[in-house]
Design a binder for these strands. Structure first.
Lengths: 138, 138
DNA sequence: TCCCATTTGTGCGTATGTATC
DNA sequence: GGATACATACGCACAAATGGG
């Protein structure tokens, strides 16, 4: 139950609840989050408040909203591995909309950026990709 | 000027404008973005709409809101470099609020996560940190 | 094809709180 | 204390897409 008198904003409390459900495994990858209308009733708040809570989870990459189907849990580790070579640099930042579309990324997913020693840059979706310096040996 | 009849939502158009100003260098790191009230007047929209636009830029890590001082441009490359060793893996994801606070990160900034070959994980703020496999030679 | 219910997207207005200057 | 500016939260309305009958 959320507490309207708490210092913590109601939408943050709702986000906390849902996040805990996801991280604990009570809600898993692909599960549907209750509809906004449903969450309004459950928590006794306005739709504005519920939507802010969902926004929080979106920006954390924990849910994907597929309008008007619903909101679904997104929680899976990277599956692809990109090889690093000596001197390559790796950094991260959020994509701008153009980059998001280009790489078919959802909201709340950061870019993994590799700068090769020749200066060329490669960008990967952070939810599907990890980088690794060739496993000992090579 | 934004177009209310466009397919692109007004708040997205406003976000596009501000983003373009930032990426072009017309607004640079530390600059103050016009106040919400000001943006309402400039674009002839409600505060709700302006705030959604700012939310977009926040989630892209392009601005930092310091209430109630104003909204400021945040646009600087990583300054710290963490050394990678053979076999280390690098990935990224958005932090949850606890992690954000722990590492003193702003909204819209992803985590840079390094998994060492012994399984230990290290987390760094993505806006200040890059990883590099020892520059050729080592 | 069409209608309808559901669900999310966008946008308006309003009100109040709180921190900064 | 007052002015400014962002934060939170309410309500309402309509649009658009989806899925089912």
């Amino acid at each position: 139950m959320i507490d309207p008198t708490s210092d913590r904003a109601q939408y943050r409390q709702i986000a906390d609840d849902l996040r805990a459900a996801i991280l604990s495994g009570r809600l898993t990858h692909g599960d549907r989050v209750p509809s906004e209308e449903r969450l309004c009733q459950e928590h006794g708040v306005s739709r504005t408040t519920v939507r802010k809570a969902i926004d929080v989870l979106k920006s954390e990459g924990l849910v994907e909203v597929r309008a008007p189907r619903g909101t679904f849990v997104r929680n899976a580790p990277p599956t692809e591995t990109v090889q690093l070579r000596r001197g390559d640099r790796v950094r991260t930042r959020m994509p701008i909309p153009g980059e998001r579309q280009e790489l078919d990324m959802r909201e709340g997913v950061p870019l993994l950026i590799i700068t090769r020693t020749d200066g060329k840059e490669e960008q990967y979706p952070g939810d599907r990709t990890q980088a690794q310096q060739g496993p000992a040996g090579k």
